[in-house]
Amino acid sequence: MKTLALMLGTASLIVPTLAHATEAKQAVFGTLPDGRAVPAVTLTNEHGVSATVIAYGAALQALMLPDRNGKPADIALGYPTIDKYLSKPQYFGGTVGRYANRLARGKFTLDGKSYQTPVNDGVNALHGGNVGFDKVLWQVTGTKDGPTASVRLRHVSRDGEMGYPGTLTVDATYSLNERDELTIEYRATTDKPTIVNITNHAYWNLSGEGAVNGAMGTMVTIPAEHYVPTDAGAIPTGALTPVAGTVFDFRTPRAIGERVRDAGDQQIVFARGYDHNWAIGRSVTSNLHLMARAQDPASGRGFELWSNQPGLQFYSGNFLDGTSAGKTNKIYREGDAFVMEPQIYPDTPNHPSFGSARLDPGLTYRNVMTYRLTTGKVR
């Protein structure tokens, strides 16, 4: 049986590229400055697909996917050691919350009371504040082998943490099956009314995380009639704008890089590329629906992304600035990856027309995202 070695901090994880069952294997990724160990769990199926999840930030640290010729590559950006996640945080694969994306000036009102969260993106709050869910050590609460292998992690966010009301208990479950489907599911409960918007911030380069050709040749489809325009600070204006006739129209497949530098569109200028929410629906649903397709024409690697969320934040890696080196010691530059985050619309608590981010005691928040991975190879 062939094997592939993944370096995980001080430990080396041997991941089978051919296995007889989908399995979950645990190792130690590294150690935090306070001495706490950071577990890593790798899920592997019989097709050579494997996903490595680290407990720091409940983050997807690696995703190995073969190309149409069977050659594997790691398509998720990330770091080889815990030290880099601490010294140069970039949200690589991280679980972001309590409120993912942006809150205008870090403020929201709930039941007539105003709340202030830390501002860490200019004058606005981004991804839960300066110590969001991506910057805490989660507890691994269970792993499972079988037709579907999985790892479950938990974080308890205390009442008042980062300014949010209520003690929020969050479970993140990663699972991989023999149909090459990677599912990330977030569930959360609270002991008092609060707001919640949790998603995963994986950066993708379907050519391989260290590929020199970047990710702008990726063909993307987003089945949305509208997108959410923003001001210069990436805060929604409150409008939903038709994509027809704009650079935001991905209803048919287009390369990311085809129009990402269109200086004639003020929205592209504001964001230095794509960093917007596409309106797939108007509310969270009980069933999954198609959010996006992405494929690398050269390798055949790709995925369909399905979720129960109404919005898709699509980001073209505009702020990868060459100051981070990844797992293959290659520099990550602008356009070297893209991000697709199923979620509710940004700044929803301050835009009643967008719906609600509210979670009450006795109810369960749920965000499910399934990546139906493809290799371009006929089995």
Score class of each variant (00 low, 15 high):
S307L: 09
N287W: 02
V49K: 00
K71T: 12
A215Q: 13
N329D: 14
L359C: 14
Y85M: 06
G311T: 11
L168T: 07
G94A: 14
Q313K: 10
H276L: 02
L60R: 10
R379C: 13
H289E: 04
K107S: 12
D34T: 04
R293D: 14
H155I: 05
L86Q: 05
P253Y: 09
Q313D: 07
E209G: 01
Q61S: 13
R293S: 14
A100M: 05
D180H: 05
Y85C: 02
N213K: 13
E46M: 06
I82S: 01
Q266K: 11
S175Q: 07
N367I: 02
V131Q: 14
A298Y: 05
D74E: 02
Y91G: 01
P346G: 10
L8T: 15
V247F: 04
Y164I: 04
L86F: 00
I331N: 02
Y227M: 11
A125H: 12
Y345V: 12
S286E: 08
G311L: 11
Y115N: 08
H47G: 13
V123R: 13
V228D: 02
I184H: 04
V368N: 10
A292P: 09
S299E: 10
D67P: 08
E161K: 06
S114I: 02
G78N: 04
N45A: 06
A239L: 14
D67N: 12
P147S: 05
A19W: 00
L126F: 05
G35P: 07
Y85W: 08
P89L: 04
G317P: 10
M291V: 05
G238R: 14
A104L: 01
Q116H: 11
R158N: 14
V38G: 07
D145E: 09
T323Q: 03
S114V: 02
R379Q: 15
G122H: 13
E304A: 15
T17N: 05
V119N: 12
L182Y: 03
A59E: 04
T173M: 00
Q313C: 12
Y56V: 11
L182D: 01
R379W: 15
L240F: 09
R366F: 02
Y164Q: 01
Q116W: 11
E46P: 01
V28E: 07
L359E: 10
S307G: 10
E209S: 07
K71A: 12
K107R: 15
L363Q: 15
G245S: 01
H201W: 09
V131D: 11
T31Q: 06
K144H: 12
Y345S: 13
V196Q: 08
T143S: 04
L290I: 04
A125Y: 03
L77S: 00
V243W: 00
L126P: 02
P242Q: 03
R372K: 14
G128W: 05
S356V: 13
N213I: 11
T44G: 06
L168H: 02
F29G: 04
G302Q: 09
D67C: 09
M7I: 12
A325P: 03
D67K: 04
